[in-house]
């Protein structure tokens, strides 16, 4: 086409075209990220996220932030560096949570009849806001990785506290004491019932009971820093606009 030609006939039409594309782009970005992030998350941290009796003070707190910081870091790498949009992490997390909530209602409850209060998803929005705000205020990937990544890990357990605390209340059942979440799990036995495969509340230093969650969160934040760096670079690669040779053209 001619370098002097424009596809639009007025500034008003240009604005309308631009705004329409904004909405189309946002929808595509939201849904595609939702799909990719969700399949990644459910298959790397899903079991701890699916069930309240998996939401323990050690592995849930450790695993979920580490595997969940991936897509937010990658999308931030594109949306901030190219468009100065400080919404990458929040967009990812909102997409993931929407997909999860729809699924938990329509399928976990709607198809296989698990009550929602045993299969609600983990809360990740506060951590995402921290990542976006640190990046927006600092404009620094390094600071976002270190301060934001650490904050992402540290805030995960507190941000889930309001919803998980009632389920961690102790109950006595047939002479044994355990949590309300465990009791729910006993009544809704699954192939992945955690007491069967022993992947919750384990460790040789369980005598430090009250310290488990903060130590796990700190370790999770540390690994999240490293994963953030890695995935930020992944995001820059995925945001590339290069072509490779096409023999047909």
């Amino acid at each position: 086409m001619s370098a002097s030609q424009s596809a639009v006939r007025s500034r008003a039409e240009a604005v309308a075209v631009s705004r329409t594309f904004d909405w189309m782009i946002l929808f595509v970005l939201f849904t595609v990220v939702l799909g990719g992030y969700h399949i990644h998350f459910m298959l790397t941290g899903g079991d701890w996220d699916f069930w309240s009796d998996w939401k323990d003070r050690r592995l849930w707190v450790t695993v979920v932030p580490i595997v969940a910081i991936t897509f937010p870091a990658a999308v931030q790498a594109c949306l901030w560096w190219r468009y100065r949009l400080p919404i990458g992490a929040t967009l990812c997390v909102l997409a993931l949570l929407l997909g999860e909530w729809i699924n938990r209602y329509m399928n976990f409850w709607g198809w296989t009849y698990f009550p929602i209060n045993i299969c609600f998803p983990s809360q990740l929005i506060p951590g995402a806001i921290i990542l976006d705000v640190v990046l927006m205020l600092s404009g620094s990937m390094t600071l976002t990785a270190v301060a934001g990544g650490l904050g992402w890990g540290l805030i995960f357990y507190p941000s889930n506290w309001p919803v998980i605390a009632p389920l961690h209340q102790p109950v006595e059942y047939n002479g044994m004491m355990f949590t309300l979440a465990d009791l729910s799990g006993y009544h809704y036995v699954r192939t992945g019932t955690p007491e069967y495969i022993r992947m919750v509340e384990k460790g040789t230093l369980r005598t430090f009971g009250k310290d488990v969650a903060p130590v796990s969160a700190f370790f999770s934040g540390f690994v999240s820093v490293i994963i953030y760096f890695l995935w930020h670079f992944f995001g820059k690669w995925f945001a590339g606009t290069g072509f490779i040779a096409d023999d047909a053209s």
Binding site: V32, V33, G35, A74, C78, G235, F238, A239, T241
Partner: peptide
Amino acid sequence: GWAALGVLGVLN
């Protein structure tokens, strides 16, 4: 599933 992020390159 990670490859879905290629949509960022298409977007740009």
